[in-house]
Structures are given as C-alpha cells and as structure tokens.
Simulated scan of single mutants.
Amino acid sequence: MEKRRIDLSRCLVRDGKADCHCCEEICPQKAIKDHVVDTAACDGCGLCSAVCPVAAIVAPEDYEGALTKAQELAPQVLMCEKASEGGVHCLGFLTRRLLWALAAKRPLALDISHCEACRPAVFAHLEREVAACNDALAEAGKKEIALVHVKPAPPKPKKTKKVERRGFFQALFHSTAEGLQEIAEAQIEHSYCFDAAAFLKAQQAEPCALFNGLALQQGCTACGLCAVVCPTRALAMERGEQAALHVDPAACTGCDLCALHCPQGVLELLPQFAGQRDFPLDK
C-alpha cells in the first residue's frame, strides 16, 4: 500500500513568502524533513494531514469516505480499524473543526480507547481536539462528544447448503473469478488528498470560535490580491458601488497567505472567528 507523500504543487513551500513546516513539526516519527516523507519511518498516523492547511498530504486512506461513513451510522460514531474492521487506519487526521462539523448536527461518539497504547502522540492530539470541540459545543448548547469503547461485532455464522454437482462447478468458477478480481483490485494503489476545507464547506459547517477570523484595517485598496492567493477560495473581493471583502470562515485554513501578500499590510489573521464575514471598503 502506498504511504504518504507531499504534493509540492499544492504545498505552501511553492510560495516564496510562506515558511510552513507544520507537517514536519507534528510528526511523532520524525519522518518528514524538508517536505519529503521518509516512507520507511512513517507509521500512517495521519497527524500531518490534520495540520496541513492546503491538503498537500497524499495518503492511502480515504478520510472523506471515513467521515461520510460515520455520518451514516446510527448512532454517529468514528472508530479506527482496531476498534472496527471497517474503521479508518488511524484517527490522527481529525481536527476540532471536523469534529464540530459532525457533532453540531447530531450527537457524535468517538472510540479512542486504543489510541493511548497504540500511538500516544495521536491520543494527546485527539484529547486536545475533542476538548476544544466540546467547549464550543457546550457554548452552543449542543451535546458534547461521547468517548466510548465499541465492542467488536460477533462473527457471522457460516451458512451451509447442499449444492448439486452442476451447481457446484458453477459456484466454483464464480468464486475463482471473484477471487482473481479481488487480487487485482488489491494490487491497485489508491491515494487521496483530503481537502478538509472543501469537506467543511460541503457540510455547511456553521463557523464558531474554532474557526479563524479576519481583521481588516483602514488602507485597503481593493486590489484583490488576497483573494487571488487564497488556496481555498475563502476570500472574495467585491467591486462596484460598494466595494467589500468577503470571507468564508469555514473555508479558511489559517495558512496566512492573504496577510503575507497584502501590499498595504492591513490584513490580519485572527485565531478565533468573532462573527464578521463582510468588510465594507471606503471608496
């Protein structure tokens, strides 16, 4: 199975003003250096995917599919493969915003019972993210995330039935064909770039204090460069009778490119969203 790598065409390293090393700093295995992943050292925890602001981490796991699958469960629960055979490899990719997107809509349970022994760094990360999300949920009057231990489902009993000679050979041929197809599919390497900002936008996640905010001082010339360099299209510049800068907090990942490229130096990224999405500009 393919391990992680960094797509340098998406990574912030391509921008001369950005100096992002989030993936390298968070990696507990020290498997990332100078934006290159040592696949032999990587254990697939997914923490790099959690902190990458531009979805530059290419991974063999379908994180979006895992979140969608969790939403289809009743009750809604997220698990790793140690808790459930159909779970994602590791829950390290989760962030407080992703948890909020799910838990703000309906109660969410999380099984991290294996994390502390399996990957202590992931366990510490998840504890922080869950605590932050629970604070926001409590502030909004919503049910907090429940930490659970999911019991493995009992194995299904095998059914036996009498098969006629002709039916036996037909079943054998069909089984062999299916087996060959499974082997062929297993040899295909799948890779995914999980775009958390796009997922949050598709979920119509309601921004709260877990999201970044923006401050705009006087002096903006409405040049629109901030919107041009934004990798997630979180900014839009409106021109006309009343010019304005619009921000979509759910799409903002905090990469800070907008502030770094502002010619007037009047943009500032805030750690918390305070409610302002529109910034009218003077003529």
Rank of each mutant, 00 (worst) to 15 (best):
M1S: 07
E2D: 09
E2R: 11
E2T: 08
K3G: 13
K3N: 15
R5I: 03
D7Q: 06
L8E: 11
L8R: 11
L8F: 02
L8Q: 11
L8S: 09
L8M: 06
R10A: 01
R10M: 00
C11W: 00
L12Y: 02
V13A: 08
D15P: 00
K17M: 08
K17E: 01
C20G: 08
H21G: 07
H21V: 15
C22S: 10
C22G: 09
C23D: 03
E25G: 01
E25S: 14
C27F: 12
C27P: 09
P28C: 04
Q29G: 00
Q29T: 02
K30M: 12
K30V: 02
A31Q: 15
D34L: 11
V36H: 02
V36T: 05
D38T: 10
D38Q: 07
D38G: 05
D38H: 07
D38V: 10
D38N: 14
A41V: 06
A41C: 14
C42I: 11
C42V: 04
G44Q: 12
G44E: 07
G46H: 09
G46E: 07
L47Y: 15
C48H: 07
C48A: 09
S49M: 10
S49C: 11
S49K: 00
A50M: 06
A50P: 13
A50Q: 10
